[in-house]
Structures are given as structure tokens and as C-alpha cells.
Amino acid sequence: MTRGAPAATGPRTVLAYVIRRLFAVVMMLLVVTLTTFVIFFVLPKWAGQDPALLFVGKQTDAASIQGIREKLGLADPVLVQFWHFVQALFVGREYSSGTDVTQCAAPCFGYSFRTEQEVWPQLTDALPVTLSLAAGACLLWVVGGVAAGVVSALRRGTIWDRAAMSIALAGVSLPIYFTGLLSLAIFSFKLGWIEGEFASFSDDPAQWFQSLLLPWITLAFLYAAMYARLTRASMLEILGEDYIRTARAKGLTERVVISKHAMRSTWTPVLTLLGLDLGALLGGAILTESTYNLPGLGRLAVDAIAQKDLPVILGVTLIAAIFICVANLLVDMLYAVIDPRVRLG
């Protein structure tokens, strides 16, 4: 993305831009996957541990370790294993140790070392939970945070500004694993308003809504605080710009100046942050899901890490990285739509 000379943004330049960025995304995903491999294969070796032993647990006998090693190809060099993993994502894979053959269709993320189940269905089971959590919270925090930020900026120095900014400061200083537990203690245990485990939307929409209500609100509170601070700061900066003075000088009403002219630029930094946050959140709202016991991607990852279940960790990490990269790409492209000063190229 370059700013400056107003070059023509034809469909061809946009296409070239998208292709270049997609290439960067693929490189990024390879680096993330390779890093995960290094963490779990190379680092333990440096520290004098056997990676295979790390994965199969300490109780198993030598023969079964050897079997697992052979079947999963753990004896191969790291780069070969990495290549097999990437290959399996696209064409599937066949695990075999002599007579024992297991098929794994594309996209094959491998088999869990612990549960011996395919990783891909586990990921697709967890994703809707994280999606529901992120979407609901996002809606709440964007509306709440931006509104609070705009009001604060327009009423700068008043009691409203001070109140909103104090709450926002408290919000960014409160960790979700504290507000989460607090909300559970009050609304779920003491008042008994919210009961039961998470249920998927298709199974029981009412229970789905009820179980996600607290996570939505606490997560949104945390993020709304950041968005309110950001919106206020950028709104104040924009209100000092020349084009706002011009708009006012033209005799436009304050409402139009704010909503049409100032808001358009305010969305740019908000969108940047939103892309990053949403991308990171979709890769697993680790803390929220752990606090509220929601079976999403974050929980899946934490459990897998605790059990050293590498294929599951690799799967979640890769999905998380994909979300982050794609969100960044979308944000950069949306820039061009929202901010007339930005050109893709």
C-alpha cells in the first residue's frame, strides 16, 4: 500500500496487488508452521529430550514408542516431516507401519497423538463456538466503543468525557479472567440468571444465547475500552484538520460534518485495529474460552498444549495464522474503499 500520487487504481493493479499479498500470506503461513515444528522438534532436542517421547507420554513401553515413531514418521528429519505435513493438507496422507494403515483425506491435519482421532473434525467442531463468541462480542464493542469515543471527543472536557474515559481506562486495566470469574460469581452463581453449559446454535438457540451472553459482554467491555480511547483520540485529531474547517465553512450542519466527513476518517484506525483484533480472536479467544469453559479453538489449543498433542497444536496455530493474515489483507483492501487518500499498488 502506498500513499501519495493519485495513480489510477485499475482492476489490473488491484489484481496484481491481491496476488502479491496472497503470496505474502502463503509465505507467512509456511513460516508459522515451520516455527511450530521447530518449537516442538528442535527445541526439545537442544534441551536433551526425545520429541517422540514428549508426544507419546512416559508410561508407554519401548515397542509402542517405536511403532508410533514409525507410523507418524517421527524418525524422519524435521524438514521432511514438515514437507509431509504441508503435502497432506492438500492431497491427504496415508499413515502406515507395516500392516496397520490409516487413511486421512485432504485437508489432512494429521491424527491427534492422544485421542487418535483426526484433527480436522476437531477444528471444525471448535470453530463455530469461537465464531459465535467473536462475532457477538465484536458487534457489541464496535458499537459501544465507537459511540463512546465519538461522544467523548465531541463533548471534550465534560463530565461525559471524563466518565467514559475513566470507564475505558478501568476496562483496559481489567483482565478478562478476572471480570469473567466475577461475572460468573455474580450472575450465574449468586443470582442464578444464567445456567448450563454451552450449546450450539442449531441444537438449542436459547441455550446458545444464554451461555454466550456473559462472555460477549465481558469480552466486549475489554475491547470497547480500547476502541473508545482510539476513536476519541483520532476524532480529536481529525476535527483539527483543514478539510473539517472547509466543510464547516461551506455551511454544512455540524451533524453532516461529523457523520459524513469526520467519521469517514475515524473509521480508518478503528478498522485497522478491528482487523488485527478479530483475526487474533478467531484464532482462539484463549483466555475467554478458558475462563467460561467454552469448547472453542482457544480451549482446544490450551488442552492440546498441556498434553503436547502436536498435530492439534499445529492445526489451531495454522488456523489462527490464516485468520490473522486474511483479516489484515481484508483491512488493507477496505482502506481503499473507506479512505479516499489511500491507493492500492
Partner: peptide, 8 residues
């Protein structure tokens, strides 16, 4: 995905 990497 920082937190994931750090716990790993």
C-alpha cells in the same frame, strides 16, 4: 498468534 506460541 502470540499467546499460542508463548504457551507452546
Amino acid at each position: 498468534p502470540q499467546l499460542l506460541f508463548i504457551i507452546s
